[in-house]
Design a protein around this nucleic acid. Sequence first.
DNA 1: CGTCTCCCTGTCCTCGAGTACGATGCGCCG
DNA 2: CGGCGCATCGTACTCGAGGACAGGGAGACG
Lengths: 203, 203
Amino acid sequence: MTHPLLVLATHDDHLARRWHALGERWPIVRANRFDALPAGARLALIDADLPDLPPLGDPRWPRLAASLRMVFASSRPNDGEGLAAIEAGCSGYCHAFASPEQLTQVVDVVESGELWVGRTILNRLLRAVGHASKAPVAPGWAARLTEREQQVAQRAALGESNADIAAALGITERTVKSHLSAVFEKMGVADRLQLALRVHGIK
Amino acid sequence: MTHPLLVLATHDDHLARRWHALGERWPIVRANRFDALPAGARLALIDADLPDLPPLGDPRWPRLAASLRMVFASSRPNDGEGLAAIEAGCSGYCHAFASPEQLTQVVDVVESGELWVGRTILNRLLRAVGHASKAPVAPGWAARLTEREQQVAQRAALGESNADIAAALGITERTVKSHLSAVFEKMGVADRLQLALRVHGIK
DNA sequence: CGTCTCCCTGTCCTCGAGTACGATGCGCCG
DNA sequence: CGGCGCATCGTACTCGAGGACAGGGAGACG
């Protein structure tokens, strides 16, 4: 199967070298400026830090989107920027320094005509329309945990204190600490905040 | 790179044969019933027409989601069912008779820990929130916070310690505490874990 | 029976988080 | 000028979290 030309639009040589790993899947070409995007290109990975990048509200974005599938890559991604990028007509939004595997996946999805946003943005959208995903966003976190450890971890990740959890489960605060220590050990985190971020799919 | 075991859960032999194309990327195993999903599996493609499938509101779904990444495959997909599936804890929703390439992509994305929904559902979500999110470009949670408070809150919500934040911003740990106290007060939360949950849209 | 895992509980101890008092300096605005 | 919001920093204090030692009981399995 033959892939279309992929344009890497960045002013940063370091970033460009990272992105060149994509050359194993797509024929690639480098662009240094937004205005210099090749006319015939169908696929582009665009650095958010490009000097001459128009603001995401600019009408040039949707115009360009008509003929070019764009992935917006930010070095400091946030949900607001991501939504703005998608609304501007980009087909994908990701971290500029994502792993080559991740980048490949994003470009792959976008090339196939789908949209790609990270799970945090997607979950934000779901919550916005009242369909919050009750289940943990990062399935698999509880794989090696015992039943009791999962219960404790779930509550801790929602902000309950050890005393709260103890009361809710009808056990001692000491036992809660015991279970949590096991959870931290198995999941490789240091405290309940890191646990929460892991359970809810952030970081 | 070694892939985890992929469970194909369907009662339909014809569908199972189609899905077996995935065997080129993942070691696969067949399951005929929802109750018969292998205990150790991490990844499953689940046919919406399985005879003993619980309704998507059933608590067994989110429980299962804790240890298993599930793709819900419907032979007659619609946006409502897709949202329900995601809400139930599934990590992906797609057409049961999608092309092998498409299925591979979906499973690939889900395996990497992301969520997958099709273009139509995503676009519908965007439209649903698009009208509301024109004016408030501000993150929302940061509306009443000062610039500095936002910076501190953002880092605290990602799990950085006060000392980390102080070092990163070139200020004293005492000042970080000061800003955080103001943040807690303005956002009506008690500690940094509650702040993190609020910032990331959980609770 | 011995071993194993899981669940439960206890007492210290350390450390970071958060609050309660305070303080100084800066820029803006009526 | 005087008030006000903002950013900065100091000391002392309380309190919960988490680790470092423990231990006992129930059930599974060879």
